[in-house]
């Protein structure tokens, strides 16, 4: 198979005005991936599927990943004048990485038995811009997997034929695979609570009732 750089160059030639990035992978055995902007993702995927040299006709795996907003710490060396002498000082810069949801497609070719090419799509943020184009019209195998990502992560796939919850029940509200998901308080009474059960009991029974009740021993 061609290298990822060659594939990228050929995509840029046939799908113009596309923003493509090759993301590194620190694991030596793993594959680097191709970050595609959401607006052109469908055209890029169609190219990868129909191209005579690649023919990636088999979409093996579709995955969602949640990247919440985090503070990234990077260390930078700086030259500072200390008492008239120039000295190198290490400084930590904290940058806020905005949160987003990510969908990863692993594409293989059954005709040529090569692969994978890893496609990544990112949403704008985690709250209101969670739309991505669905690739189910290209690969039918993505249908249930995209439904699962919608169900567990809350990514809305535009153009999906049947976007409903699949593993959770239809009335369920939250997205349980997100990193900030809080499990519901389904505390059950226990006569001798301890450790995390005691914490759950303290949370479950309000404080006003007094210390002996507050221990979570009795409702």
């Amino acid at each position: 198979m061609e290298t990822l750089e060659q594939i990228k160059a050929r995509i840029e030639k046939s799908v113009p005005l596309t923003q493509l990035d090759i993301l590194p992978n620190e694991c030596p055995a793993g594959e680097r991936s191709l970050l595609v902007e959401a607006g052109r993702a469908f055209e890029v995927a169609k190219f990868l599927r129909d191209d005579a040299q690649l023919k990636l006709d088999y979409c093996s795996n579709v995955t969602g990943i949640d990247w919440p907003e985090t503070v990234v710490k990077t260390k930078v060396k700086k030259k500072v004048l200390v008492e008239g002498v120039e000295k190198e000082v290490e400084e930590t810069i904290e940058t806020l990485r905005s949160g987003h949801l990510e969908v990863v497609y692993h594409l293989y070719s059954m005709a040529f038995k090569h692969g994978p090419v890893v496609l990544r799509l990112r949403t704008g943020n985690r709250a209101d811009q969670t739309h991505l184009p669905s690739l189910t019209p290209l690969w039918r195998g993505a249908e249930f997997q995209e439904r699962e990502i919608f169900d567990l992560y809350g990514v809305i796939f535009d153009g999906h034929p049947d976007l409903r919850r699949i593993l959770m029940w239809d009335e369920f509200k939250d997205f349980p695979m997100r990193k900030d998901y809080v499990a519901p308080d389904d505390f059950e009474y226990e006569p001798t609570p301890h450790d995390e059960v005691l914490d759950a009991a303290k949370k479950h029974y309000p404080v006003e009732a007094g210390p002996e009740v507050n221990a979570g021993v009795k409702p």
Binding site: N25, C27, G30, S60, T63, I65, H106
Partner: peptide, 30 residues
């Protein structure tokens, strides 16, 4: 070490794959 990997084998029912993302901690990130 940090990184991501997709591994697959031919299970009796079909392609069984695992996709792992490590951030260097004892638990997988994904």
């Amino acid at each position: 070490k940090a990184g991501e990997v997709y591994g697959r084998i031919e299970g009796p029912k079909g392609e069984l794959g695992f996709y792992l993302i490590s951030d260097g901690s004892p638990n997988p990130y994904r």
